[in-house]
Design a protein around this nucleic acid. Structure first.
Length: 537
DNA sequence: CTGGGGAGGGGGCCC
DNA sequence: TGGGCCCCCTCCCCA
């Protein structure tokens, strides 16, 4: 018995020794591999840094060469230094409109003659040439960008800060160097712009940021996955294309109250381009204002990028703004590159235009510029949306404009208020950051920004963003009026019409004027009444 | 001012 | 979860 115990003890000791030896061996192997791995990583990082420096040097060299060449041709006034971030607003490339498949180009926005050479930056891919608008952000002289400044220029006024010149921002404050847009393909152009931003701001952009930025800007170029750019793969009329993940999926976001404007249709609805087999309607002018077609970033690539941005960023719970440490470009005294001065597309502002204009103003005033329009929006809860005194000027301005038409409706519908977000809305519009409960909803919503109208009426030229709207519209042709009044013979094609009509019978006037207590059966009457008699709204 | 026509945006429900 | 559909609310326009 004693021998047995001794034997077991010895066995246990041997096992322990063996186990310890094994552990030590494993640790040694791990340490060795780890050291090797670290060494490889270090070497790779060194190589990356060297390549990055080399790239920057080459780009600066090219930039200087162009500067020398073009400086002679230009009279340089006190033009402010400009910073262009070409990939700030990626394309809303859903509706290619006149854009033929497979082509992507960078051009100055139509009508913006201040883009020095009046020549589009064209990147021809394939057999054709198409246009693609570039939205850029310019940094004005600090002295020109006073606090809370607001640029409202008259039509036709030529503000150099709004010129679409691509200018090199020399680190030493040298005059901006115009760049020949025609001489530079889109990708290096964009990349250089970012690099220049980095150069000017020095430490604002870390090297990692540059890398990330370069990666993103490269995605501006079309990819093979862009099925919408391929006419061969276009969906038939009336059938929406399979949509990619053109929205942001972000969990646990506080509700957004940012609404988009109505009436995009009038502006976005352009002349029908018979060459466009896809039924998207895009207004080229409008595209220039905010619906540029830097396609790929509007798709999964962009979403991935944005997701990464979000993952790296920090959402201020107070809604003060999204802090994206490594990707945020801080531009002091940035002039608002609004397009108001030289673009008038009618009475109504398009959604994209509104968004662009005021989001950029917002960025200007908050001195935060990032590469995503999402960052241009202040992330704030619905309560803070009501333009509280703590809001920054830009914040207020942006809210005033972006929500002006929709705030009331959003509140009544619960679309932009707390009550409307009882359900988790993880799917974010990548243009306005509004949250939706499912991807279909956000895809449908994003057509507001893109102008995409995939549903085409076979009997007229009308196009619609929603299938239900097309179906409803077709009653115009069929004469179907399924909603009939029970108190008279009136019939209506829309349920809302019947409901509105029934107030004739009921005498209901739910809308009362707060000034004179006069009551109206429709809200629009009240609004007109207030406009005429009380000078409100 | 009233009433109707038609469209845009979005929520909810069902499969 | 995606897709489709229906419905609601709202708006603009016009007679």
């Amino acid at each position: 018995m004693a021998n047995c115990i001794v034997f077991h003890t010895q066995i246990a000791s041997i096992m322990e020794v063996l186990a310890n030896a094994a552990v030590a061996e494993i640790c040694k192997l791990v340490d060795d591999d780890y050291a090797v791995f670290r060494l490889e990583i270090t070497q790779s990082q060194k190589e990356n840094r060297a390549l990055r420096r080399k790239l920057q040097l080459q780009e600066l060299k090219v930039s200087r060469e162009r500067t020398e060449g073009t400086m002679r041709e230009r009279v340089l006034t006190s033009r402010p230094r400009s910073v262009k971030i070409l990939d700030r607003y990626r394309g809303m490339a859903r509706g290619e409109g006149p854009l033929t498949g497979g082509h992507r180009s960078f051009v100055r926005p139509a009508g913006h003659n201040t883009w020095r050479d009046d020549q589009p930056i064209t990147v021809e891919e394939g057999s054709g040439t198409s246009t693609q608008h570039v939205i850029v952000i310019e940094s004005a002289d600090i002295e020109a960008a006073g606090p809370g400044f607001k640029q409202e220029r008259s039509e036709g006024e030529e503000d150099p800060r709004h010129s679409r010149d691509i200018q090199t921002v020399a680190t030493g404050g040298a005059p901006a160097a115009p760049e020949d847009p025609t001489a530079s393909p889109a990708q290096p152009r964009t990349r250089r712009s970012i690099t220049e931003v980095s150069g000017m701001l020095n430490a604002v952009l870390k090297s990692e940021t540059d890398t990330k930025t370069l990666t993103v800007t490269q995605r501006l170029l079309p990819t093979g996955s862009d099925h919408r750019s391929d006419p061969e793969r276009l969906e038939p009329l009336g059938c929406p294309p399979a949509l990619g993940s053109e929205y942001l999926l972000y969990g646990n976001l506080s509700p957004r109250t940012i609404q988009s404007h109505r009436d995009s249709g009038d502006v976005l609805e352009t002349g029908n381009n018979p060459s466009c087999s896809y039924t998207t309607e895009m207004d080229p002018d409008n595209m220039a204002l905010g619906l540029e077609r830097q396609t790929d970033l509007s798709r999964g690539d962009w979403n991935r990028y944005s997701s990464s941005v979000y993952s790296e960023g920090c959402l201020d719970k107070k809604g003060e703004g999204l802090v994206v440490g490594e990707v945020t470009v801080k531009v002091e005294g940035d002039a608002p590159p609004t397009w108001n001065a030289d673009s008038h597309l009618g009475d109504g502002l398009s959604q994209g235009r509104d968004f662009l204009d005021y989001s950029e103003r917002l960025e200007t005033n908050t001195n935060v510029v990032t590469h995503s329009p999402l960052h241009a929006l202040r992330h704030h809860d619905p309560v803070s949306t009501s333009m509280g005194p703590s809001d920054s000027h830009g914040h207020v301005l942006f809210d005033q404009v972006l929500n002006s038409n929709n705030r009331a409706r959003a509140q009544t519908q619960g679309g932009g208020t707390t009550s409307g977000y009882s359900k988790e809305k993880r799917f974010l519009c990548m243009f306005c950051n509004k949250g939706f409960s499912c991807s279909q909803k956000v895809e449908r919503h994003q057509r507001v920004h893109t102008g995409e109208k995939p549903f085409s009426c076979t009997q007229c030229d009308m196009r619609f963003a929603q299938a239900g709207h097309l179906k409803r519209h077709q009653r115009v042709h069929t004469g179907e009026k399924p909603y009939n009044c029970t108190q008279c013979d009136m019939r209506f094609a829309q349920a809302g019409d019947l409901k509105r009509h029934q107030r004739v019978h009921t005498g209901e006037k739910p809308y009362s004027c707060p000034q004179c207590e006069k009551r109206f059966s429709e809200r629009s009457y009240l609004r007109i009444h207030q406009q005429k008699n009380h000078s409100t709204l």
